Amino acid sequence: MEEKWLTWAKQIQSIAQEGLTYTQDNYDYERYIELRQLSAEIMETYTEYDMKTISELFTNETGYQTPKVDVRAAVFREGKLLFVKEKADGKWSLPGGWGDVGFTPGEVAVKEVQEESGYIVEARRLLAVLDHKKHPHPPSPYHIYKVMIECELVGGDAAESIETSDCGFFAQDELPPLSTGRITESQVGMLYNLHNNVTLPPVFD
């Protein structure tokens, strides 16, 4: 579902980053810098990101480029799913964020739920591993894998956080405005289906 221009920009960026990592030739190094600049210009032309932001995104990592991992927790209570309101855009998402070094995916899910909603949960089941570009998210400069983990509510109370201003449980037919860079309506439907059919295997891609 990803636009061709975005796929090409990411591929150019990936080639440039690999080249900058492994080349020992000064001439090639300059060419890879130009390739990275070209990919940034494509991103600036077709997205809301400015060149400074894009350049920072494209130059803050070194070494062989790999997908980033976004871990999201699916917490159900009485048939409703937990959402948090993101301060960044004023819309709603599942608790979660980038995977942290030193934590397993389940530990990240548990930590993010408590930090963003105040609730205490235990990770129970892998629901899905999704490729961001295969789903109707807005364009992103990153190639992202989304890991969805079902968690059981065991305690805690609703609370705000640095990144979120509210939280609540919503039924599938009463969803709040979604932060589509983080979660989509079709993905929410998938999570409800997996939750209601525990014998189904995890979804991938």
Rank of each mutant, 00 (worst) to 15 (best):
D70G: 03
V108Q: 03
N60F: 14
G97C: 07
E185L: 13
E44Q: 04
E48K: 11
V71P: 07
K52I: 15
P136N: 15
H195A: 05
F83Q: 07
P141R: 04
V147E: 05
P176E: 05
A158G: 11
L81W: 10
L38Y: 11
A74M: 14
V203N: 05
P138I: 12
Y142M: 01
V108M: 13
L127C: 10
T180F: 09
L81G: 08
E3F: 11
E34W: 02
R125K: 15
V71N: 06
K80L: 05
L153A: 12
R36G: 14
F83I: 05
I15A: 09
E116L: 11
E122I: 14
V203M: 13
G99R: 09
T47M: 13
K111T: 04
A9G: 07
I162R: 08
V203R: 09
Y142G: 01
I15W: 12
A159S: 14
D205H: 10
S39M: 10
L191E: 01
E3C: 03
N193F: 10
E163N: 06
K85R: 15
G19H: 12
L38W: 10
D205I: 10
A16L: 15
P139Q: 03
V69Q: 02
S161P: 00
L6M: 05
D100W: 07
L35K: 02
Q37D: 07
E163C: 00
P67L: 03
I183M: 15
P141Q: 08
D157M: 08
Y32I: 12
S165P: 06
D100A: 09
R125V: 09
M190K: 04
T53Y: 11
T66N: 00
E48V: 12
P177N: 08
F169Q: 00
V84M: 05
G99V: 01
Q11H: 03
E122K: 13
G106F: 13
H132P: 01
C151I: 09
W5E: 00
E116T: 00
A171N: 03
E112Q: 05
A74W: 12
D205R: 05
E112H: 02
